[in-house]
Design a protein around this nucleic acid. Structure first.
Lengths: 202, 202
DNA sequence: GGAGAAAGTGACCGAGCGGTCCGTTTAGTG
DNA sequence: CACTAAACGGACCGCTCGGTCACTTTCTCC
């Protein structure tokens, strides 16, 4: 039943990879409204080629988002499996998220809404992983009980956001703000939170 | 020496006010790329009128930014004068900042860079006020010593940022995240910070 | 109420965008 | 090597945007 969809031509796979990489760079430098023309030029191909590989600009963006979220989720699952200290695991995940986004300024990723069912799927998977990390951290007492997985998802991107307003920020300044926020998550001396958590994000 | 620059006509001041209000609303709803044409329509004037009052779109934005930052700074100075508990004062200021930005979604304000010397001036004034609030909080022991004024400036907008990813968020959800972050600023049980603070933002 | 300056208006311009289309090039195959 | 389908390229289209300008309307003051 499975069709044999004639493998892609060599130049096509090469160009697709170049395009993905150029797009990530370009989005990183100019934000979400980097132009397709610039991306094409950076990848050394014509504009038409971009649309041959990705039907719309959003599809191109979705491909990048899926790639990164998948990698991040994999790291989360690895920590879940291999790191016995639940607090260290959660913090390690948050660090990985911040690092990935800092490496090439990928903060634009956050602005990407629901681009496609695939994006929604990989995001849901990642949210599940985060929920598990937070549950374990609750059980081990590393994180205050009134903080939910959704809270952590929301706070996850805050260090990068904060750092993005520092011109020429050193590449690991985010560690400072992650530390402050993580301290806010710890149970010691925590004040009761003034507002119920939001429902889980769809 | 002071010239007497013939006061503005009545319709001019009326339209200017309408324009500022319409622009704030429009920017709040559509972000920074709300179009001048839409703003003009909302204010009930022609497009040409917008440019009569504000030479460029950036000038219009700058006028709004100055307005809001000035108000916020005034509140900060009031707290400095009237609130004896330095911890309460700092927290009150952060709450005022979050509230102002939430009220009409003004998160776009953060994205506004250096639009004009006036913006830079009012921003510098506000930063001074924040520095004083933080200094007092240090002295009274309400805030950990290794957190600087610049840190607070950077973290100030994080609650709004976080909430902006919750669809149909209740209007004071920001309080939850301000509480978490503020807990991270308190000296009790704080872990040493892993990275030096950035230099004061110009 | 009338003169003149100030303010308002919307058609218009040029630039840049995402996306299309078709003639051309090129990788794979027997 | 020759042939074909896949992939490429870039001129082109329609649209929207910020900003301009010549003309009209409205306020203000005597």
């Amino acid at each position: 039943m499975t069709e044999t969809p004639r493998p892609q031509r060599a130049d096509a796979v090469r160009n697709r990879r170049a395009l993905l990489s150029a797009a990530a760079d370009e989005f990183a430098e100019r934000g979400l409204d980097a132009s397709i023309a610039d991306i094409a030029r950076r990848a050394g191909v014509g504009k038409g080629t971009v649309f041959r590989h990705f039907a719309t600009k959003d599809d191109l963006l979705a491909a990048i988002v899926i790639d990164r979220m998948d990698a991040l989720n994999a790291e989360g699952e690895r920590l879940l499996r291999e790191e016995p200290d639940a607090g260290v695991a959660l913090r390690g995940f948050l660090a990985a998220a911040a690092e990935q986004r800092q490496q090439r300024d990928l903060s634009f990723l956050q602005q990407a809404g629901d681009l496609s069912p695939e994006v929604t799927a990989v995001r849901t998977r990642m949210y599940d992983t985060i929920d598990k990390l937070v549950d374990h951290a609750h059980e081990s007492g590393a994180v205050r009980k009134d903080v939910t997985g959704t809270d952590v998802i929301l706070l996850m991107c805050a260090p990068n956001y904060v750092v993005s307003y520092v011109p020429n920020a050193p590449p690991d300044l985010w560690r400072r703000y992650l530390a402050i926020i993580f301290d806010g998550l710890r149970p010691e001396g925590a004040q009761p939170l003034p507002h119920p958590p939001p429902a889980t994000t769809a």
